[in-house]
Simulated assay, not measured.
Amino acid sequence: MDAAEARARLSALSDLETKLSELGLHWNGVVREAIDDVRNRTIADAGDAVAHICMPCCGPIMVGDKMQFTTDAEPLCEACAFSWGDMREQWAQTAQAPASEEEAAEAAASLAAYVAHIDAGGSPDDKPLILAEVMR
């Protein structure tokens, strides 16, 4: 299966899950298992074309797509990714009440990166993205 076909299949599954949720239908074991089975087989058939699955929307992140990892290492597609402004708020809250010295240092470094982005002409609405690589 080529990357375009894998993207189409995985996007269709994501759309199906969204529609079922919008209709207020509750997932039962059989439906969830069937969707997961099709998703897993599609990923396997696509080989190295699929890098990740976006956690919030369940859409495909293909190798070469723009993406972001959350602080919990969850993959986000470009559409679901946080902006610099979104993350600045989180960093500012963490800096005010850090759980550890390490967390305080990380928040300070992240806020400095935000300031550097803005000083370089960036916008708070920009998203700090990376290119997706082969899933390991």
Rank of each mutant, 00 (worst) to 15 (best):
M1G: 01
D2P: 02
D2C: 00
A3D: 13
A8C: 13
R9Q: 03
S14N: 03
S14F: 01
D15H: 00
E17Y: 08
K19R: 12
K19N: 08
S21I: 07
H26C: 01
W27V: 00
V30F: 05
V31F: 15
E33K: 03
E33I: 03
E33R: 09
E33D: 09
A34G: 06
D36K: 13
D37W: 05
V38I: 15
V38Y: 04
V38L: 05
R39M: 04
R39T: 00
N40C: 01
R41E: 09
I43P: 08
D45I: 01
D45V: 02
A49Q: 11
V50P: 07
V50Y: 09
A51E: 00
M55V: 07
P56V: 00
G59T: 03
G59A: 01
P60R: 05
M62W: 12
V63A: 04
K66S: 15
M67Q: 13
Q68A: 03
Q68L: 11
F69K: 09
D72I: 09
A73F: 11
A73W: 10
A73K: 12
E74N: 11
P75A: 12
E78A: 07
A79F: 05
C80T: 09
F82A: 02
F82E: 12
R88W: 09
E89P: 06
E89R: 10
A92H: 12
Q93M: 15
T94M: 14
T94C: 15
T94R: 15
A95I: 10
A97F: 13
E101K: 08
E101D: 12
E101W: 11
E103S: 12
A105W: 08
E106D: 09
A107P: 11
A108T: 12
A109R: 13
L111D: 04
A112T: 08
A112W: 02
V115T: 03
A116C: 01
S123I: 14
P124I: 15
D126M: 10
P128C: 06
L129P: 03
A132C: 07
E133T: 01
V134K: 15
V134N: 03
R136D: 11
R136I: 02
